[in-house]
Amino acid sequence: MVGTVTRAVIVGNRRITRLSAGVIAEFVAELGPLWHERHQAKLASRPRRRAVGAGAKHRRVLIDRLLATLIHLRHGVTHDVLACWFGVHRSTITRATGEVQPLLAERGCTISPGVRLRTLAEVIDHLGASGQTGIVDGTEIRVRQPAAGRRDRDTFISGKNKQYAVKAMVLTDQSGRLLFCSPTKPGSCADITHARELGLVKLLADGPAVEILADAGYQGLGAQTGQRVVTPPHREFKKNAPDGHRKYMSAGARRTPPAVSGSSTASPT
């Protein structure tokens, strides 16, 4: 997909992907067999007029597809821009990100040698076992305007930024280290609704004693989780806020919020 020189520049410059060459090599070694296996299974699963492997031969280099996906996730670069940079059609970038993103999500988040968190339930259990405070927040990424006639087109309009966007819920530890990033939802989905759909309320209510700091978008979850979600006080409580709210206000000065993507555009596909 991309030339050797360009690939070496992307891998060697940590400002592009924020990953070292060694970590990228580990990704390729770990995800390569899974990607090849799923690709072959996809070819064999549908009715075919020709045998698997017939037809035009595409240059399917996993590292190029991985780099395109990492750049898209890191900087929110549109598929059109990546297609120009990698010298391919936009549909190739869309297909590449669609293949690699599920593999990265299933791989999970490595927080220490031998400890890898893949699901939200595992993150809650880890915070409970380690006695750490979690921080949850929603982040939006601007996307291209969906095609005219698409039924759910209006659901991508963010009520906060008044633009087309997709939203993800991010959960970090008290030091701001990323532990979980949810699949994206259309921008009109409220933060608290997204958290409920992901099962955060049930995990906190039935799971270990974990304290989660959240912003005003999650007000109401505290009552549903036994005050395990701490949010800022309502306006009428600012002077005489309950203990939990006062703790939030004091902790907010020292906490590190989850990283929020910039205003660059990305494709909803």
Score class of each variant (00 low, 15 high):
residue 63 I to Q: 13
residue 98 G to M: 02
residue 76 G to D: 09
residue 228 R to I: 07
residue 202 K to D: 15
residue 269 T to P: 12
residue 119 T to Q: 07
residue 63 I to K: 08
residue 20 S to R: 08
residue 2 V to R: 04
residue 184 T to E: 11
residue 128 G to A: 02
residue 21 A to L: 05
residue 98 G to F: 01
residue 58 H to D: 12
residue 242 P to L: 04
residue 140 E to P: 03
residue 82 L to C: 02
residue 202 K to H: 15
residue 22 G to Q: 13
residue 214 A to C: 01
residue 266 A to D: 01
residue 233 P to H: 10
residue 178 L to A: 09
residue 32 G to L: 03
residue 143 V to M: 01
residue 182 S to W: 01
residue 135 I to H: 08
residue 183 P to Y: 06
residue 184 T to M: 09
residue 17 T to P: 00
residue 27 F to A: 03
residue 148 A to F: 09
residue 213 L to D: 08
residue 149 G to C: 02
residue 35 W to I: 00
residue 58 H to P: 11
residue 23 V to Y: 14
residue 238 K to S: 09
residue 106 E to F: 05
residue 250 S to V: 12
residue 56 A to D: 12
residue 209 A to Y: 11
residue 245 H to A: 13
residue 106 E to I: 05
residue 231 T to K: 02
residue 117 L to S: 01
residue 158 S to F: 01
residue 115 V to W: 06
residue 172 T to G: 05
residue 129 A to L: 13
residue 110 T to E: 15
residue 166 V to G: 08
residue 76 G to Y: 04
residue 67 L to A: 04
residue 81 V to L: 13
residue 213 L to W: 10
residue 196 R to P: 10
residue 138 G to R: 00
residue 83 A to Y: 03
residue 154 D to K: 08
residue 190 A to H: 04
residue 42 K to I: 08
residue 148 A to C: 08
residue 113 P to T: 09
residue 61 V to E: 14
residue 149 G to W: 02
residue 136 V to S: 04
residue 82 L to A: 03
residue 90 R to W: 07
residue 167 K to V: 02
residue 167 K to Y: 02
residue 9 V to K: 11
residue 231 T to R: 01
residue 74 R to Q: 11
residue 224 Q to Y: 06
residue 192 I to E: 12
residue 216 A to R: 15
residue 252 G to N: 12
residue 119 T to N: 09
residue 215 D to Q: 07
residue 266 A to W: 02
residue 94 T to R: 14
residue 102 P to G: 09
residue 225 T to A: 05
residue 24 I to W: 00
residue 40 Q to E: 15
residue 221 L to M: 15
residue 180 F to I: 07
residue 50 R to I: 14
residue 172 T to M: 07
residue 65 R to F: 06
residue 232 P to I: 06
residue 86 F to D: 00
residue 200 L to I: 07
residue 43 L to F: 08
residue 103 L to K: 00
residue 216 A to N: 10
residue 222 G to E: 11
residue 67 L to Y: 03
residue 139 T to A: 13
residue 65 R to G: 06
residue 47 P to V: 01
residue 156 F to D: 00
residue 16 I to C: 05
residue 104 L to S: 03
residue 52 V to S: 05
residue 58 H to Q: 13
residue 30 E to S: 11
residue 30 E to Q: 11
residue 111 I to C: 07
residue 258 P to I: 08
residue 113 P to M: 09
residue 14 R to F: 07
residue 47 P to E: 01
residue 265 T to L: 10
residue 167 K to M: 04
residue 160 K to P: 07
